[in-house]
Write a protein that binds this DNA or RNA. Structure first.
Lengths: 178, 178
DNA sequence: CCGATTTATATAACATGTTAAATATTAACC
DNA sequence: GGTTAATATTTAACATGTTATATAAATCGG
């Protein structure tokens, strides 16, 4: 309830120019807009907004789609591999595989040599699903490329890869660095 | 179980070079590695891996931190504003605010002129939390900037902003485009 | 061969993302 | 002025992210 209404102080944060990166005033906290995670998130949101409706039409989530797509790049996967390749955590992948198996889009087996290891593969039905969606997905990609420019897109890919590489090593990686 | 082991077909997907962006063979599906959402996700993961442990030490999630940070940029927020500024969906924000209020890090009131609208503000306790964490957060930022290069980081920020802008308009925005 | 450690996967518990629907309040229109 | 549409927020239901732990099987050491 009764907080003193000092709304005048609301404009503390100056509107950061696009080129202004080190937007920090005196002893204050880093300008909120210049948060790298936020910038990456917003860009990702904007991109996914183009793809989500398409996947949703076929009752697929983004992650389920990633798993199916990954499964087309090799004949069989172990769960751990699949998690790494599709950038999905093992707990999530475990649930996703259960769902996709129920829907008949993937198959699961067990390796002979290592009874712990799973053999995960896409089914013909799964391939049909991909064949159905992929062309539309490509169209969205083409739209994005046209809107943003192929050259800038290439630059962006490069920077993103380099950023992940550069942070993956020293400390940020999943390596056990007790 | 007994799936024919045609492992030879596993190499359909050519290993894309870093510079190769339009990695598409004949009628095949887009090279999985060249997925823009994936590239953005991996970069974000790499960055967040640097910050998450820090927040976790103080029992804060990334999103709770975003909300607190956003609340320092103005004296009061309505829930909708806060959701937009911190890039959190309203349903999530609703839960987050409940949690943060219980912990005494934020306060909630109601606007006189519009009884639907919330007046959300950070508490002194919330500011203390930020003051405690912010210096460490800044150090991580400095590390990332040093590792990646301030110039490339600036370029990346620019591209990410432009990508979000460019996709926000035509179709991808939240506008009801029935 | 047996116990301890590592590896591969799954579960549990809680927080958030996504979509849809509910609720409450305001604005609009006749 | 009262019904209807729009707005602000919440809740529900389900899927995923994050962390920790459990389970099972392989490996290592004695």
């Amino acid at each position: 309830m009764g907080r003193p209404s000092r709304k005048a102080a609301a404009a503390i944060e100056p509107a950061a120019k696009p080129t202004e990166v080190t937007g920090q005033s005196a002893g204050e906290i880093r300008a909120f807009r210049r948060s790298l995670p936020m910038a990456l998130l917003k860009a990702r949101e904007a991109v996914m907004a183009r793809f989500r409706p398409l996947l949703h039409e076929h009752d697929l989530t983004e992650q389920q789609w990633r798993v199916l797509r990954a499964l087309t790049t090799a004949d069989e996967f172990r769960a751990g591999e699949l998690a790494r390749v599709s950038s999905i955590s093992m707990p999530s992948l475990s649930r996703i595989l259960r769902t996709l198996e129920k829907r008949g889009l993937i198959q699961r087996g067990i390796e002979d040599k290592d009874l712990r290891a799973a053999q995960i593969s896409i089914t013909p039905s799964g391939r049909d699903m991909i064949a159905l969606i992929a062309p539309h997905s490509e169209r969205r990609y083409a739209e994005i490329t046209a809107a943003f420019g192929a050259d800038r897109l290439a630059t962006l890919y490069g920077l993103l890869d380099e950023l992940a590489d550069c942070l993956g090593g020293p400390d940020g990686g999943d390596g056990d660095e007790e």
